[in-house]
């Protein structure tokens, strides 16, 4: 939640203008909400409360309904992604090899939950499905870097590189 992690919302004039256009474009369609949310997420990278408010206002739907849709579809996120996007694989192979413990360690270390972002905007955590590197299980990624055969003790050293 943007409020909880406290990443302050900011937008450029271009972003604001684009959102207005998107709302204008879809306004009179049936089922405008989902396409507008998609395009808004493309503009901002995520769907913070401030953006949802503009959409609610523009389309005349309630905030509760928007939040319902945003939490129903996994592709929507209410939190920004960090400069470094951490992905922990929770696919079967990784999971049986203990990726759950890896994830817990990262959460503890950064003080945030899955789908959240640290207040300085640096790290965010995603729980992913199999990324096709099962031979290296358990696996995590930081942006494009892949780390395999992990034990919780490795985490400090890995995160250190990006601090």
């Amino acid at each position: 939640m943007s409020e909880k992690t406290g990443v302050a919302f900011s937008e450029t004039k271009e972003q604001a203008q684009k959102l207005i256009e998107v709302i204008e474009k879809h306004k009179n369609e049936n089922g405008a909400l989902i396409p507008v949310l998609h395009e808004a997420q493309e503009i901002y990278g995520y769907l913070p409360i401030e953006v949802q408010q503009k959409i609610a206002e523009g389309l005349g739907v309630t905030m509760a309904e928007i939040y319902g849709v945003v939490t129903f579809y996994t592709q929507f996120s209410v939190n920004p992604k960090g400069k470094y996007k951490i992905g922990v694989c929770l696919g079967t192979a990784c999971y049986v090899k203990g990726s759950g413990n890896i994830l817990d360690k990262i959460k503890e270390k950064l003080g945030i939950d899955v789908d959240e972002c640290t207040p300085d905007g640096k790290f965010s955590i995603d729980a992913t499905r199999c990324i096709g590197a099962c031979g290296l299980a358990p696996v995590m990624t930081v942006n494009d870097d892949v780390y395999g055969r992990l034990v919780p003790e490795d985490i400090d050293g890995i995160l250190e590189k990006y601090m």
């Binding site: 309630t62 509760a64 309904e65 939040y67 319902g68 939490t71 129903f72």
Partner: peptide
Amino acid sequence: GVIDAQGR
């Protein structure tokens, strides 16, 4: 309209 269904 302050309450709605969320999640899945």
